[in-house]
Amino acid sequence: MKVAVTSTGKTLDSPVDPRFGRAKNFIVFDTETGAHEVLDNRSGVDAAHGAGPQAAQEISRSGAKCVITGRCGPKAERALQAAGIEVIPGATGTVAEMLEKFRRGELSSSAESSDPNGS
């Protein structure tokens, strides 16, 4: 299964980017093979409007089934839900730390904990 983590940098030890729609990068990690790829989210960062939906489209194309991020706005959440992608908000620390927690099953998706005012 593929998992996407919002990241401020391009490596696994980069800090998590707390934003979803305008996150700098997405690191998409394949839990079966251990391989990862970096998606530059320039189109989201540069979007005049609708960065969240735009980013959701990118994630959907990458084949990820789960997104780990700081917070996710209502529009992005709706788009991700429609694409059948699970959202795990509240992430802090580095991408690698989050992936490790995910592997150990210590992260859970919780719709109610995401910020309703996020952008």
């Binding site: 979007a47 005049a48 409007h49 609708g50 960065a51 939906p53 735009q54 959701a56 489209q57 959907s60 529009k75 709706r78 788009a79 429609a82 694409a83």
Partner: peptide, 18 residues
């Protein structure tokens, strides 16, 4: 151009406010 309708594999999702 406004990301007001996005296609995510299945039927697209519309964001009226955009």
């Amino acid at each position: 151009q406004y990301n007001a309708i996005v296609s995510l594999g299945g039927a697209p999702v519309v964001f009226p406010e955009l």
